[in-house]
Design a protein around this nucleic acid. Structure first.
Lengths: 244, 244
DNA sequence: GAGTGGTCTAGACCACTGC
DNA sequence: CAGTGGTCTAGACCACTCG
């Protein structure tokens, strides 16, 4: 049975199906890492052909909501999956090698959103937020100093201890403990001079150039849930990007 | 008629068709900006169904080789197309606005490839190369200082005058005058201190932080044809990136 | 072998463009 | 109106995974 709306604002059937699957994902019908029903089952459920479901799933997989695995099924994308590890960390050594990193949380405190944080997180001025400061180490040496601003309503209960005990990526923590799945992020890069605090933490001279990386991360429905600013020491590392 | 090779190293039919189309593109059968034959025609030509051609074209369009336009046809991607303008220039104002930019060539000379240029361009040491220096201006103010290394065999005959007279993007020049179509690029970003030359050209104090952007651009068959290093002043602009 | 995603086909119809 | 890409279907078969 085909139901396609009339001409202006035309949306193909597979996009409507995509919306329904997205809705189910957002509603938590299937948890991260789990399989979702087979294409054939979904086709029956939505009353469309398998090819139409397929196209919807194709798009969701391309946007990193889902992960297809031939012969096994289609899975809800998860930050616990090692495959997704380096998706949001674009640092590598100058010679091109990858290195494992270790996150060392420094502080975690409650605050009220200022002008900038409120705008970035699309919340009201003075709404509760949580601020985390941490260092990222590569081979034991500090390379990134991050200041992370989180919506207080979503991440209520987050403490320094929780962060310290967590051994996987921070997005994996957010997903597992708070049910928040990061889907995409926007970054803005600049070169800045190291201030006193940064030079201390990153072990570089005051005033030396650092890469400033501001990131807003979005969850379902393009809802911003994290705003962070990182200062990267690019003495031995660089930020890599693919233009296509 | 279906011809699919046996199990190991299995390549689906549509990928073989993709290869054939790529071959025709590389061979110059259709020029940038031109329409290629309709899906139906290609299906007849390659002896497969239209759906299979469609999948091949889908991938080529996703990789920016082709451009589909409903009701009109499928076109060979071109850097002359205004749509492709900002694909390789990720700078915007700090407030998020886009600005038109103007390229001001400074120098253009012949040289022999050194260690690094040879490695990046995958040519032999001392092979001929061309080096271009130029400034990129936004609203009349210099923001980017580029040093561009090109393979001498491909860009033979390039002069400062040619660069100065060309009013569109430099990739548009490469495509139109030298038949070289950039498909993708890899960038490596670092923060560095402005040296004397850069501080003069970009009108910033010596030693102030600049964004260093190294880029290798690839043409058909992943052949590197350009290596460049840009120094970006990020006082009023920033480099934006989407992580997904 | 049963179940999953992946490929391929043939055919119908729709939306968009331009003559 | 004809021609293009875009959607949708139904059905066949293939490649991969796992019990």
């Amino acid at each position: 049975m085909v139901m396609v709306s009339e001409s202006p604002t035309f949306s193909p059937l597979y996009r409507q199906i995509k919306g329904l699957i997205l809705q189910a994902l957002d509603g938590g019908e299937w948890r991260p890492g789990e399989v979702i029903p087979s294409e054939a089952e979904l086709a029956v459920r939505f009353g469309v052909s398998q090819g139409t479901v397929r196209k919807a799933v194709d798009e969701l997989a391309a946007e990193n909501y889902l992960l297809r695995r031939q012969g096994k099924g289609t899975f809800v994308a998860s930050h616990n999956d090692p495959r997704a590890f380096f998706r949001f960390l674009r640092l590598q050594k100058l010679n091109g090698d990858f290195e494992p990193s270790r996150s060392v949380p420094l502080e975690c405190w409650r605050a009220k959103a200022g002008q900038e944080a409120a705008r970035m997180l699309r919340i009201q001025l003075a709404d509760p937020i949580i601020i985390v400061r941490r260092v990222l180490q590569f081979s034991g040496k500090p390379v990134v100093l991050d200041e992370i601003y989180l919506r207080g309503d979503i991440f209520a209960g987050l403490t320094l201890d929780t962060l310290t005990e967590w051994k996987d990526s921070i997005y994996s923590l957010f997903e597992t403990r708070f049910g928040v799945r990061m889907i995409r992020a926007e970054e803005r890069l600049r070169a800045v001079a190291a201030d006193r605090a940064a030079s201390d933490m990153l072990n570089v001279p005051e005033g030396s150039p650092l890469l400033s990386v501001e990131r807003v991360s979005y969850s379902y429905g393009d809802k911003p849930v994290e705003w962070r600013r990182g200062l990267y020491s690019t003495v031995e590392h660089c930020y890599v990007n693919e233009l296509s």
